[in-house]
Design a protein around this nucleic acid. Structure first.
Length: 410
RNA sequence: GCGGGCGUAGCUCAGGUGGUUAGAGCGCCAGGUUGUGGCCCUGGAGGUCGCGCGUUCAAGUCGCGUCGCUCGCCCCA
């Protein structure tokens, strides 16, 4: 075999894979539109600074997973590892926030330099939504409901758990961070190497460490709730009540955190145990500090992203394609008539299969393999009489109809 | 970056302890059926056995290396 392959961690999407992919994006967009979301598409690369500033230098994504390169003009550019920063940038640079809230849906490729494994690629695709400009808990509820409904419409919400948590507002969060650092410092020597690093960089992340030893220490850590001020507590209560009123089942996972500074209040994750080591199918939260951090106005936001490949892995089978009608000409005169008929029926909205060549038997076979529901056969006899034969390929029954009445007859 | 598993036809896989022209099923193409699919029969195309080096009279098979894929760790969608 010739030595031509895709770059490690990338895949071609074709056939059933492509159908599943499109089914996910199509379904998601349709439902997002029901919620009043408009679609946005931002460039797949941005100035590196956009991601570095929004994600923070210490995050794994920025420190080791970005595809960064210098273009011919000397600018440092980066293939987007996620899309919230790009959308936020678009909102600022395009002055889109005239009448908040702005509700945006996107889908497209993202790039992270990681070791590929099940449900994880170097080029992967996400769908996502952002509500920008509303500090209201109703936005959090709506966004979670939208995610839930998309998974329901895709038929994959069986076996999915919705976990939510709150980090509180910046005041609560900072108070809690100090408490945590105080607590974990007492166990510093016993923490895993990773968590010792986190202690200075990102203490909240110690809470969801998977290390056994860490977990024992985490179990005794002071709960976040104690550090929350009334406003934060109230906000979280409204989110939970709102989800409860919609009968969306969720669990409160106190160790679910987002490490970055701009995250506030709600954090949530839709998880499954059907994706090997990857459990997150859809995840997001409120990011009230983000817009300001990348140089825009101090504007709140909430959103999520979901991996299309992961959703596609959960899909049972491939979505069915609409069945075509095949035209089978018999003889040279019918050949020309078939092309005219195909054009006419396609313009009338029908899906038409017309093979370029082959004997009638071969064409019938092709019609069958194309999963055609009907075959229209035309020979010299039919041509002379102004009729065509309609063959039902499921039942094997054949009948004659007038050529002139065709678009309506099929 | 670290660890496990696996690389033989388009796909799924056979190929005891090395042995001569490398096989099957599915799929594909054609014929049987010069105006009718599915089922059946017959034939055909398609392989540098991932790549390299080594051991040997002889390597798909053994050894070493390398590349790739895959699963897991970290982290994440």
């Amino acid at each position: 075999m010739a030595d031509v392959r895709t770059v490690r961690g990338t895949h071609d999407l074709v056939g059933e894979d492509m159908q599943r992919h499109r089914h996910v994006t199509g379904t998601a967009l349709e439902i997002a539109e029901r919620y009043g979301f408009g679609e946005i598409s931002t460039p797949i690369f941005e100035f590196t600074e956009i991601f570095a500033r929004s994600l923070g230098d210490t995050s794994d994504v920025v420190s080791k997973e970005m595809y960064t390169f210098e273009d011919r003009g000397g600018d440092s550019l980066t293939l987007r590892p996620e899309n919230t920063a790009g959308v936020a940038r678009a909102v600022i640079s395009g002055g889109l926030l005239q009448s908040p809230p702005l509700k945006l849906f996107y889908s497209g490729p993202m790039f992270r330099y990681e070791r590929p494994q099940k449900g994880r690629m170097r080029q992967f695709h996400q769908i996502g939504v952002e509500v920008i400009g509303s500090p209201d808990a109703k936005a959090d509820i709506e966004v979670i409901a939208l995610g839930w409904q998309i998974l329901e419409a895709l038929g994959v919400n069986d076996g999915i758990t919705v976990e939510i948590n709150s980090l509180g507002d910046p005041e609560s969060r900072n108070a809690y961070r100090e408490k945590l650092v105080g607590y974990f410092s007492g166990y510093k020597a016993k923490l895993s190497a990773d968590s010792q690093t986190r202690l200075t960089r990102n203490p909240l992340r110690i809470l969801d460490s998977k290390d056994e030893g860490d977990r024992e220490i985490v179990a005794g850590a002071p709960p976040l709730g104690e550090s929350m001020n009334d406003a934060s507590r109230d906000f979280f209560a409204r989110v939970q009540d709102g989800l409860g009123a919609l009968d969306i089942a969720f669990t409160h996972n106190r160790n679910l955190v987002r490490g970055l500074d701009y995250y506030t209040h709600t954090a949530f994750e839709f998880t499954t145990d059907r994706l090997g080591a990857q459990s997150a199918v859809l995840a997001g939260g409120r990011y009230d500090g983000l817009m300001k951090q990348i140089g825009g106005p101090d504007t709140p936001g909430v959103g999520w992203a979901s991996g299309i490949e992961r959703l596609a892995l959960l899909l049972q089978g491939a979505p069915e394609r609409p069945r075509p009608v095949a035209i089978v000409p018999i003889g040279p005169a019918a050949e020309a008539e078939a092309e005219k008929l195909a054009f006419e029926l396609r313009r009338a909205g029908h899906i038409i299969e017309l093979a370029y060549k082959g004997k009638p038997g071969q064409r019938m076979k092709k019609a069958d393999r194309a999963n055609a529901r009907l075959a229209i056969t035309i020979g010299d006899d039919e041509l002379a009489r102004g009729v065509v034969k309609l063959r039902d390929l499921d039942k094997g029954e054949e009948r004659e109809v007038m050529r002139a009445g065709l678009p309506a007859a099929i």
